[in-house]
Design a protein around this nucleic acid. Sequence first.
DNA 1: TATAATAAGGTCAGGGAAGGTCAAACAGCT
DNA 2: AGCTGTTTGACCTTCCCTGACCTTATTATA
Lengths: 152, 152
Amino acid sequence: MSMTLADAIERHILSQLAQFGEVALQRVELARLYGCAPSQINYVLATRFTPERGFVTESRRGGGGYIRVRRAAHPEIGRIAAALLEAPDGIAQGPAHALIERCREAGLVVDREAAMLVAVTRREAIGLPLPLRDLVRARCLGAALLALSDEE
Amino acid sequence: MSMTLADAIERHILSQLAQFGEVALQRVELARLYGCAPSQINYVLATRFTPERGFVTESRRGGGGYIRVRRAAHPEIGRIAAALLEAPDGIAQGPAHALIERCREAGLVVDREAAMLVAVTRREAIGLPLPLRDLVRARCLGAALLALSDEE
DNA sequence: TATAATAAGGTCAGGGAAGGTCAAACAGCT
DNA sequence: AGCTGTTTGACCTTCCCTGACCTTATTATA
């Protein structure tokens, strides 16, 4: 039960999250606060504040840059999305459409959204040879669902 | 909510635009108002009030010079979809996102749909090298918008 | 009427301020 | 030793902002 730096930073962010519902942090500041390299913050975010765990992070570079972390509005979709994004072989059209239909039945997406997703994941829309096509399909569908997991 | 100078000036112009429908500004005056270099105004216009985002700017130099900003006419979804599906070079990420944002402003797509489309058209979502990526992006976005124009 | 002065806006390179990525070193277990 | 997870540092990309210099239009003046 040793308390690594990553654990400490995770707790820090979680506590902020519990307090305010959304964290806006400056990478350099947080790193200085914990006396570590800035990239350590990325490590914590990448390993602990993932879609699988129901978190959404966004960031902006350049002057006035920031990193924001919050809980996903619909973690279930986030988990599905995460699985798709990690599927090493991608997903074929049939299973993808079945998945979309299940999401529709479950009320996770509405009709128009489902229609869009079906259209995007069609063979002809992607227009690439296998096995690339299935990979791109999985990434696109995953990205779309991930985005939805964060929307009210 | 970072609020850089550029963001503030953008808001200023947007609010004027919302109020009067058209903004006529004096570069030096606006710069003085925000205590910045005049060229900063050009930066804001160049990065935020572009044709791709649906703005038209015109200007005149010399005595009595000015810069005017207005909104361009809203796009039609069917036409856009058709154009995308036929674009020989596809579409880059920036223009694609600007296009989606315009569709959202025009009420052609709602927030969730726009978020999905932005996610799907991200570089990392497609995950292919150029120039293939821009092509797939155009096909997917075109297919999605086409699906929407069929709905309802 | 030329010409000069003045009053705008335009362009572009460059510096600075964020955050991102990735491989390599490191630490703690089994 | 080997494996897993942690931590760092070097290098990269994106975004912001300015200053020096340029172009264009109007106005005053010879």
